[in-house]
């Protein structure tokens, strides 16, 4: 299968010219299945496949008035070790949606790259955007293809958030490793520190918050997760590494500047200091 190659004649391969689906993943599955991330065979005898790739940790999402926010800490772990202090796990999926990953980092990052391309490819071929539910379903399909890997310990658990242009609201979708898709309301979290982050979100989330308040809540939830979960990284003021926080609204995807996150993080630390050691 020489797809992008066209080595012998230089012309576009017939597969490119054949009318077909608007999905890049379908196109790959049909004409170059070896390039799909899920189609790898794990060699026998690997006792602990999960140790092959670092583990990405906590992602939180919450809605606010006029949009949705997605945030993730910056740590990846390999067993008890910190594999990365500055990994980014929250990405724009397209102009009106964002995706964050927890679980096996290598596979997760590849999944995100393919998902971004999938949405862009559809948009270019069709000349219009997929509906938000359509995007969420595409991600579920792609995740389902990864099930064999997940069963061997290389699971990816994404969190998908986007602005629904038809309904005019932000929406959150969570997934399980089998490709199950669940719509979440108000707020949600995935990853190792999500138990603590969700606890914090439950207490801090308010109806009708604006984007600025939502950023504060997200950073505080991640702060709580980092406080109790060793695999979640807190704001690193020494190195200047802060959680990735992005909002999606009618104006599109927007990543909040590090300077702003730094300011919010300092505020939270100051509040906690005031409350006492155990806060």
């Amino acid at each position: 299968m020489t797809l992008s190659a066209d080595r012998t004649t230089g012309r576009l391969p017939d597969a490119f010219l054949r009318p077909g689906s608007s999905s890049f993943v379908d196109f790959l599955a049909e004409h170059a299945p070896d390039r799909l991330p899920g189609n790898r065979v794990m060699p026998a005898g690997v006792t602990d496949p999960a140790s092959l790739s670092p583990h990405a940790t906590t992602i939180v999402a919450l809605t606010f008035d006029g949009g949705v926010l997605l945030a993730g800490d910056r740590r990846a772990t390999a067993g008890p070790m910190i594999a990365s202090r500055s990994i980014e796990k929250v990405f724009p999926a397209d102009e009106y949606s964002a995706v964050g990953i927890a679980g096996s980092a290598g596979i997760g990052l590849e999944l995100v790259r393919l998902f971004q391309l999938e949405l862009e490819h559809y948009e270019k071929i069709e000349g219009s955007l997929l509906s938000l539910t359509g995007k969420a379903n595409r991600l579920a399909t792609m995740l389902r293809a990864n099930l064999p890997m997940a069963m061997q310990g290389l699971a990816v658990v994404p969190l998908f958030a986007g602005y629904d242009l038809d309904k005019g609201t932000g929406r959150i979708f969570s997934y399980d490793a089998t490709g199950g898709r669940y719509e979440e309301h108000e707020h949600h979290g995935v990853g190792s520190g999500s138990i603590f982050a969700r606890g914090a979100l439950k207490k801090l989330w308010r109806r009708g918050m604006d984007a600025e308040a939502a950023v504060h809540v997200a950073v505080e939830a991640l702060y709580d997760a980092a406080d109790d979960d060793s695999a979640t990284g807190g704001p690193d003021t020494v190195r200047g590494i802060f959680p990735v926080v992005a909002t999606v609204s009618v104006d599109g995807y927007q990543r909040i500047e590090d300077a702003e996150i730094s300011r919010v993080a300092e505020q939270i630390v100051a509040q906690r200091r005031e409350r006492g050691h155990l806060a």
């Binding site: 992008s4 010219l17 390039r35 790259r113």
Partner: peptide
């Protein structure tokens, strides 16, 4: 239109690879 779609596939495939 057929050529356009082929071009998008070519570009996306190349960029992905």
């Amino acid at each position: 239109e057929n050529l356009r779609v082929a071009g998008v596939r070519y570009a996306d495939m190349r960029g992905y690879s």
